[in-house]
């Protein structure tokens, strides 16, 4: 499951797989999460200790590492739903969901592609992944190039409404 989370002024993509493995901006991290009370978590990331306490729920505000920060969470389904309903007509960035190799690019800047059309093929973990557009859109900017290695979170393309 993928989430996009706004933490203070930064936005990050967070992936959680069925085993509870976590990736931030496409890079997997070692996170051990322990609920130590209602709305209170101890989170060890690569052995470093973070405590997160929910201070307020709406909007979500937490205390973490001795500071306070506001959070907003959008999951992938909500985001796709919002896009499909036309609620979000702003430019949309396509980023690499994980580190890998761009093996092929199927579009050029200015192209209009239909929903489900592929922008590029990303090889990662010995699998080829097609990065598709969620709805009909124009390629406003293209950053992906065949043969390039990318990190998780790298910008591949910016889509604009047709």
């Amino acid at each position: 499951m993928r989430y996009r989370c706004r933490v203070g002024a930064s936005d990050v993509d967070l992936d959680i797989d069925v085993m509870g493995r976590v990736a931030i901006e496409g890079s997997s991290i070692s996170a051990d999460v322990e609920a130590v009370g209602p709305d209170l978590w101890s989170i060890l990331i690569d052995g470093r200790s973070h405590e997160v306490a929910v201070l307020e729920r709406d909007p979500l505000r937490v205390r973490i590492d001795g500071g306070e920060v506001e959070l907003a969470l959008v999951d992938e389904r909500t985001r796709i739903g919002a896009r499909q309903s036309g609620a979000d007509a702003r430019p949309y960035e396509v980023r690499a969901p994980m580190p890998g190799l761009i093996v092929a690019v199927h579009v050029r800047e200015g192209d209009v592609i239909d929903e489900g059309g592929s922008i590029c093929t990303l090889e990662a973990m010995k699998m080829e992944n097609e990065l598709t557009v969620p709805r009909r859109a124009r390629i406003a900017r293209l950053r992906a190039s065949a043969g390039a290695k990318v990190n998780g979170g790298d910008l591949l393309a910016v889509l604009a409404p047709e």
Partner: peptide, 17 residues
């Protein structure tokens, strides 16, 4: 600006919450 790891931990907590 927050340290990246703080951002990560906060994001995880948001999902947990």
């Amino acid at each position: 600006a927050l340290p990246p790891e703080t951002v990560a931990a906060a994001a995880i907590a948001a999902v947990m919450s």
